[in-house]
Structure formats: structure tokens, C-alpha cells
Amino acid sequence: MDISSYSAVPIFLGFGVLFVAFNYFLNSLVTRNVAEPQKYDSYECGEVPEGSAQIQYNVRYFIFALIFVLFDVEVIFIIPWAVVYKDLGMFAFVEMVLFLLILILGLVYAWRKGVLHWFTRPVEH
């Protein structure tokens, strides 16, 4: 298995773009656009939209993304270990127990710090 088998991936990506574009095109052929100013408002339950939605958001999302990056990078280190695990035996197991313990320690730390708790404070006006 050499790298050339991945040549199918860009072809699939390109075909996907064409497929989607073709569907959009079909849609534009069949539909009839009737311009009506209110139609192009953002949906807000029928009210006139208030302000933009591209605003600052809850930092919780960012913190979860940050923890995820840490864990995902560590998972990348586990993947090669898992593939060759059978050939290495006890040695690999002990090594990985140590590695995973450090990982779990990180999880416990985040847990104790309350990062994993999705709290919601009442809004102060």
C-alpha cells in the first residue's frame, strides 16, 4: 500500500464539490425568486431581528475545545502504540499505563478545578 492510493481522496473531494454545485444549479433552474424585503431578514420568530449574531460567546465552549486539543494530541500518541501492541507485550503495557495515568491525572485535575462543570449563572441586569 503506497501513497498513490490516496489519489482517490482529492478526486472524491472534487467530485463532492461538483455534485453539490450541480444540485445548487438544478435548484436555481427550477425555482422562481420573488424579491420581498422582509424575506431576507434573519429568522427571529417573526420579530424584526435585533442586532447581529456575530458576537462574543460563552468562554465555556473555548475551554472545552482546549481540553479536547490536549486529549486528542495524547490520543495521537496512543494510536501507534495500539497498532504494534501485540508485538511488544508487557513492556508496552507498562509504558502505556504510566502514560495513561499521567493523562488521567490531567483529567482529574481539570475535574477538581471545576472546568468540566458546565455551570450557568443567572443573568445579571
Binding site: 473531494l13 467530485f15 463532492g16 445548487y24 436555481s28 431576507y40 431578514d41 434573519s42 429568522y43 447581529s52
Partner: peptide
């Protein structure tokens, strides 16, 4: 047959590409 309505406030290109990316990700 449904009319393709683009909200005036939308970010045109990001809005256009989002369904395409979601399709292509699964397709690939």
C-alpha cells in the same frame, strides 16, 4: 423547487460552503 433564500445579513461565502462541506466530509 423551493426558493433559495439567502438572508441579507448572512456571510455569503461561508453560508454557501457550509452545506457543501458537510456533504463532502461524509462523502469522502
Amino acid at each position: 423547487q423551493k426558493e433559495d433564500i439567502r438572508p441579507a445579513a448572512a456571510d455569503r461565502w461561508i453560508w454557501w460552503w457550509a452545506p457543501a462541506v458537510s456533504f463532502i466530509a461524509v462523502f469522502a
